[in-house]
Amino acid sequence: MDWVVLGAEELLGGEARKLKASIEETGFPLPAFKPYVYRVLLEQKSVNKETLAAMLAKLRIKGLTSKVGPNESVEPFPAEVAFEGRFLTSPGKKPYGIPYEGTLLQASLRPLLKKAGFSRLPSLPVVLLPDLLATFEPSDRRYHLRMNVLGFPALISIPGIVLAPAKPREYYLLKQSGMDPAGLNRAFKGLFIDHGDPRLPRVVAGLAFQALAYARTGNAFCDDAGCSLYNAHWHHELISLYGPDEAKNTGLSRGIPLCPAHSRMAKDWKVTP
């Protein structure tokens, strides 16, 4: 299978080389790397700027406790469309905090990517995004932030890696008592993966491998908490996977941890594309 990672340079900056090294060292088939997804779509003329900006503005979720998703019949405000338009080709500057409907975004991007020449499987686009993604959870009938949305294309939210997995319970108790976010982040430094954390590119590599595994086998997750395919819901789970010590992660990375079965699977894919 061939696969393409879009947006690594724009969203990870200099750390993109760590992502590439992680993938290579783990023994995955090496993907092609392309620019940020919306830049590609605009360059390939799959969609025009105004339509793309309006599409994104319509996919915003207004409050995570909302019981209903974006309403197709409600036109977004001009300021929302203008906001999206300003950051279509500069994702690194886009302020984060607005959650977008992950499954609807994926469905909206699917035809546009196909039009831009990304055919369906066996070619898998893995799209890195500067936005928060959320999907509706029927069990408690509300939206939840996600690190990634699997399928075609696979979406990975960079701020979602920081905000979607749960931090230590004490973090939320202190936050509820009014402690400011910057002070909280300092107090809990090292206990969660933050923006700029040297482990972040390896987490992205693990999520990209989840997307690849799902595309090939229909099953993304592994029960082994020591495997990158483990469906981590807590930051401490990510930290136990990618290492507790930030300092040790500063050099060009090692590969990502895999259980013996998935390690064999990754190597088999490399030799039998």
């Binding site: 001009p78 300021a79 302020p95 984060y96 607005i98 928060l132």
Partner: peptide, 25 residues
């Protein structure tokens, strides 16, 4: 107009969002 109401306080967000959305509604 259709006003959605403010979003969740539990989502950390960039303060830039307020400035970026300031303007004519």
């Amino acid at each position: 107009l259709k006003v959605p109401g403010h979003g969740s306080m539990w989502v950390e967000a960039s303060e830039d969002l307020v400035v970026e959305h300031t303007g004519e509604v």
